[in-house]
Design a protein around this nucleic acid. Structure first.
Length: 345
DNA sequence: AAAGAGCGCACAATTCTCCT
DNA sequence: AGGAGAATTGTGCGCTCTTT
């Protein structure tokens, strides 16, 4: 493997000159530049990324921390969100390192990762990751709302509370007074926000949202999202009164549909169904097609990346940004005034 | 004799000062 | 314009010395 020293020796110049030829940070004559390039080509020399990072104290790499479930599920939301991050990073010459290792509390396994900043997904109520990156002095942006009681952090999120309030009102306008809500895991801040929004909608109409109709995903109980949806319907159908089910994500809704089919419950005639998070291909592949709320994951990713790159260049006060959501009305649930506050239909 | 602590160096590139 | 030499960066290795 050729190094800068080999090229310098062969080209009859100093290491500093070779460095300047490649980085273009100092003007070098055309003749010397040509000579250096020719030698580099002959020796197969390319600047070593690790050595450059070591010297510049930056890696031009962004870490993207997102856990993969036990079942190895990769929802469309993740793919879209990652696309948004990659696009913005690429425009600024940054690469993206996808870190899917599960978070773990063993300090001996923790390393200072070779990244200039990180984007974290799915913040939990008690999320230690933010404190750790702060200790390491690595800028971080969260997608989702970090716990407000912890140290202030930069984040990009949907306005989940407002979204659920709007969805709740729309469902009430359709006559749905009994909702079954299959929420995310209890320790996720997003789960709390969405529940609060839904409750507020029902309270605003003088109704109470019964605790019996609110469920949390628990991976100890359900190996997959689909199973969570399936099992919850199987356990509650006929026992709890509800006319509509809201699921935290589309794969849960797929499980709900499977259970409904087996129980002879027709969608949407006897039971309406709305998924939070839209996978357009999957939603239109099933029958009936699934009504969903588009969380605009690509935009979430892009905004998070922009915020992080800005933070890397010039540190500043913690900031946040909210990304709009939009109802995508299909067959599984009709909603009035679908695009109020949103963009896409 | 084994284990542990501590030191110095190599790695590859950048960047600085001083010099021609 | 560009060369020489040194400092710098974090990690891992090899070595010596000390402790158990």
């Amino acid at each position: 493997m050729a190094t800068i020293a080999d090229v310098a020796r062969e080209a009859g110049v100093s290491k500093a000159t070779v460095s300047s030829v490649f980085s273009k940070k100092r003007p070098i004559s055309a003749e010397v530049t040509e000579r250096v390039y020719a030698v580099a080509k002959r020796l197969g020399y390319y600047p070593n990324h690790i050595a450059v990072s070591l010297s510049l104290k930056k890696t031009m790499i962004i870490g993207l921390q997102m856990s993969v479930t036990n079942a190895g599920e990769w929802p469309a939301f993740n793919a879209e969100m990652v696309s948004g991050v990659i696009q913005v990073c690429a425009e600024s010459g940054y690469r993206v390192l996808l870190d899917t290792l599960p978070e773990n509390s063993d300090r001996t396994t923790m390393t200072m990762d070779p990244v200039d900043g990180v984007i974290l997904l799915n913040p939990a109520q008690e999320d230690k990751r933010l404190d750790r990156f702060r200790q390491m002095n690595i800028p971080a942006v969260v997608i989702g709302r970090p716990n407000p009681s912890s140290t202030p952090a930069c984040y990009v999120d949907n306005n989940n509370e407002e979204m659920m309030f709007r969805l709740g009102l729309s469902l009430l306008a359709q006559g749905h007074r009994q909702v079954l809500f299959l929420n995310a895991a209890a320790n996720m801040t997003v789960a709390q926000d969405r529940y609060e929004g839904l409750r507020a909608a029902y309270r605003s109409q003088g109704l109470d949202f019964p605790i019996t109709h609110h469920f949390h995903y628990d991976w100890h109980k359900h190996p997959t999202a689909d199973e969570y949806g399936y099992q919850t319907i199987a356990d509650t159908a006929g026992l709890l009164p509800y006319t509509v089910v809201i699921t935290d994500q589309m794969h849960i809704a797929i499980g709900v549909m499977r259970a409904a089919r087996e129980l002879g419950i027709s969608i949407p005639e006897q039971l309406s169904l709305v998924a939070l998070g839209d996978d357009a291909i999957l939603a239109q592949e099933v029958s009936p097609s699934l009504t969903a709320v588009d969380l605009q994951p690509r935009q979430l990713g892009a905004e998070a990346a922009r915020m992080l790159l800005d933070l890397i260049q010039r540190a500043g006060e913690p900031r946040h940004r909210l990304v709009d959501t939009a109802f995508v009305v299909r067959e599984s649930c009709s909603l009035p005034n679908p695009n109020s506050g949103g963009k896409k239909g």
